[in-house]
């Protein structure tokens, strides 16, 4: 069953994505760029390192990956047929 989120109307998520975005803590400098650009509020900084809080509201825009100068964001696509979808894009 697709999931919806009150904060983001008109979008559905299909679970079972797998951990498609990961962080390489060794490389992370804690700069916070990923947190700043993520409109889905998916990121947080804990002990000066970035961490994925949730992928449940990720729109797969890849902005976190683009802005990570340290190359610490490992970005791939969720499993086929899962993740966000919308009728209104």
């Amino acid at each position: 069953m697709p999931r919806t989120e009150e904060k983001f109307p008109g979008v559905e998520w299909i679970d079972g994505t797998g951990d498609f975005i990961r962080v390489d803590s060794e490389k992370c400098t804690g700069c916070g760029n990923c947190v700043n650009v993520c409109l889905g509020d998916c990121w947080e900084i804990v002990n000066r390192k970035a961490r994925i809080k949730t992928l449940a509201t990720c729109m797969e825009c890849a902005s976190c990956w683009y802005v990570c100068d340290a190359g610490a964001v490992l970005f791939s696509w969720p499993k086929g047929g899962t993740g966000y979808r919308s009728e209104w894009g």
């Binding site: 109307p9 008109g10 683009y66 966000y84």
Partner: peptide, 9 residues
Amino acid sequence: KIRARMWEG
């Protein structure tokens, strides 16, 4: 009435 919100690069 707002119906949807999404983002993309």
